[in-house]
Structure formats: C-alpha cells, structure tokens
Nucleic acid binder design. Sequence first.
DNA 1: AGAATAATTGACTTTTACGTAACAGTCAAT
DNA 2: ATTGACTGTTACGTAAAAGTCAATTATTCT
Lengths: 128, 128
Amino acid sequence: MDKYYSITELTREFGVSTRTLRFYEDEGLIHPERRGRTRLFRSADRRLIQEILRGRRIGFTIAEIREVINVYKEPPGELGQLKLMMKRIDEKRDELRQKRKDIDETLAELNHAEEACLTRLAEIGVGT
Amino acid sequence: MDKYYSITELTREFGVSTRTLRFYEDEGLIHPERRGRTRLFRSADRRLIQEILRGRRIGFTIAEIREVINVYKEPPGELGQLKLMMKRIDEKRDELRQKRKDIDETLAELNHAEEACLTRLAEIGVGT
DNA sequence: AGAATAATTGACTTTTACGTAACAGTCAAT
DNA sequence: ATTGACTGTTACGTAAAAGTCAATTATTCT
C-alpha cells in the first residue's frame, strides 16, 4: 500500500494552501518525494504536517518546530549540544505550562465576558 | 494611596519595552493619565497590561485582545451585536480548548524528545 | 546653572509566515 | 485540440507587532 497523497489532497484535509506546504518544504520541515517535479507525500509526511500545524497553533515559530522535529529524528551527537538541547526542551516545557495557565485564566475571563453579555441581553429583553 | 507607576517601572516588571506600552496606548488598549506629556499608570492600567500580555502569550492579536477588554468594559447595546459577540466568545473558547489539547500533546512530545536525548547521552557516556 | 537622566514623538526598519501574481508544464476527459 | 484541474517555480507584497534611531523636552542631581 503506502499510499501517496497529492498536495491538494493534503491542503484540503488540513485547510492550508499549497503555498504553505511548499513553504514548509523550503524550510526543510518536510521532504516529500518527487515524480518528475511533482511532490508525492507519504503518510509520514502527513503526520509531520499534523505536527507542524499543531506547533503552529500554539505559537511555535518555524525554527522551533524544526528544532523539535530534528531532535527526535536524530538527537545531536556532541555532549554540549545534547545538554543544550535538553535545556531548551526544559524551557519549552515551562513555556507551555505557562501558556496552559494563561489559557485557563483567559477561559475564565471569557466566561466572565459572556455573563456580561447575558446580563446586557436581559436588560434589553426587559426594555422591549 | 493609589500609587502611580512610571512607564519604565512597568517595562521592568513585565519585561517589555516602552515602545510596547506606548503602542498599546496607541491601539487604545490602555489609557494612562498624563502629567504634562508624561504617562502616569494606575494599578488598573497595570492589571490591564497583565491581561494584554497574557492574551499575547496565547497568540491573541491586538484586535482580539481589544475586543475582549471592551466587551466586558461595556457590552454592546444592540441585540445583533450582542449575539455576534457571544458567538465570537464561543468560538474563542473552542479555539482555546483546542490549543490546550495541542499543548498537552506537544508536552508529551517534548518528553519523548527528551528521552531520545537521554538515550543518546547514555550511548555517548558508554563510549568514553 | 549645567550636566546627566529619563521621557516623548515620529519615522523608518525588521521579522515571520505566508499571500499573490505571473507564467508555464502535465494529464485526463471531452 | 482544447478545456480544466492541478502542479510547478520565481519573485515581489503584506500584515502584525514591535525594534531602532533621531530629535526634542523635562526632570533631577550636585
């Protein structure tokens, strides 16, 4: 099996443009095969794209996404690099935990804002 | 009491530049008082800045942040606007929930990446 | 008073992540 | 053979959110 995906197939699935996928290739995040000049995406590429888009949604830059992808494709061989990498992973984790806290707080705020709306709605409803 | 904060005081506290705070003022997110041309920030402004930065960390645009702030400063008076607003709040909530899921998944991935590093570290350690 | 320090405005620059335009090749179906 | 859908490349454009720099003012220290 091991089906091929065309570029538009994937753009439709993920709601991104062809430009975006080609851009990710330029940036070295994915490496679809070629038949002539046409890109052929494997399911491994598809999963990578999912990962990229997930990173994107939480505000990772391309460089950061690339870093994560590369690390666990093949962790650096040199000790210093490895230690640095682990430090960065740790920092990223802290950042994400902070972000989760921010999200929870903002969710609470949105609830608050919604209530304000509902209150206002009641006021208007009464007026009519 | 009701202390005044200077702009640099706040930039230090929050780790942003003066340019940033002035930019937020230009964008209508905060309205510090003035003594002559100098901005005087109240604690209400300070809290708003916290809120803004929290929004920023989770990837809200200035426009979105402004929207939330305004809504619960004073919810729109017109019914249509009000309903629209509540719809947008609902969408934002969905978005944030998705983002939280993304974060959890990425945290798991970072753990995975860290393990890859540790494995590699062990390999190197053995070699020496 | 004079120098140093801090704040202001305004204009210009930068970075990221694509969008968009222009133009051409490929391939299946009509 | 043409149409239409898709694909490709190259190159320039753009929006958001500041950063940077220069020219002015104010304030504070001694």
